[in-house]
Amino acid sequence: MTGSPGSPGVGPRRVAVLSADWGMPGSEAGFAARVLAGAASRLGPVDVFGPWDPGRRADGAFDPQGIGRPPPGRRWPPEGAPREQGPYRAVLVDGNDAHAVTLAASIAPRAPVLGIGGRTLAGMAACLDLLPTSGPVAGRIAVGLQVPVHVLASERPHLELGPVGDYLLVLSDRSPAASDPATPPEPVAWLVARHPRRHTVLVENGMASVWRSRSCLRRFGVHTRMDLWRLVAHARATVDLGPGPLFGRECVESVRYGVPVVVPVGSGAEGLAQAGAALRVDGTAALLDAVEALDEPATADRLRRAGAALDRWTGEPVLLVHRLAEALDNAGLSSRSPEPGWSS
């Protein structure tokens, strides 16, 4: 895509994005790559490359370019398949994708490679943190991410909820193959048994089930993102049993609605917990205690305040563009020089 002129004072910067998950529904890596590509397009031209048949394909704001299909069991075509594409200021790749780092060296040999979230792998100049870490960390640059939510979701709860006032929202971690509507995940069974007087709403595989008194009262479909946002926006708290691997998109959305979050230790939403906007639990027993802890107004308020402070990292697209510009300007200066002939 040919990007729009950048902000005043920020020169054009051509960026390549390598994303195997581009356009894949439900993929956090694809979502993050798209958001950062959108932010980069405000600074200069953006070329998106993916493991598809060679050629460009229309994709709304971007025309991603295929570099060949991968062999079975792999995410990318063999090394050396893509040729050098031109001077780039930087190449953005999925943070945990070592193969993409290697391919980036073929597409833009002299450009610094920046990982989107995840780990800083060999060959990367730095990793772009999608949620702020506690203090500066070598090899990591906090750029944040814009996670959009719809403000109107707070207006009224989901129509199918019925006469359910206060409820705890639980996002399941089970795959469609492993899920059984009659038997909720083990932590949910414990929550329902421990707090039978409260409503617990479990969202799993596009269906929501309302639990109370150790039994399921009703089920209904969660067909759209707006349906999910309505459920999140009116919950007492959100428990995400399996946050996304990069930043925990639903957790961030919950925080943006001012709803406290409980996440597992070591999950993708660790950044939220480090920022004080989420409670971390290391097992089901701790989960039960955490849900009880949220009954204390002081605890819930503390989490909400920390979450509100995160809004400049997750809800402000202009700030994201400025942070990305800074990251592109600074990245690679210590490891690699910008490509010759490049002027910013």
């Binding site: 529904p25 492993a178 596009g206 999910l228 946050p243 999950s267």
Partner: peptide, 11 residues
């Protein structure tokens, strides 16, 4: 649109 994309191994 959320948990179906997260396998059991995700968390």
């Amino acid at each position: 649109m959320t948990t179906s994309s997260r396998g059991a191994a995700a968390g």
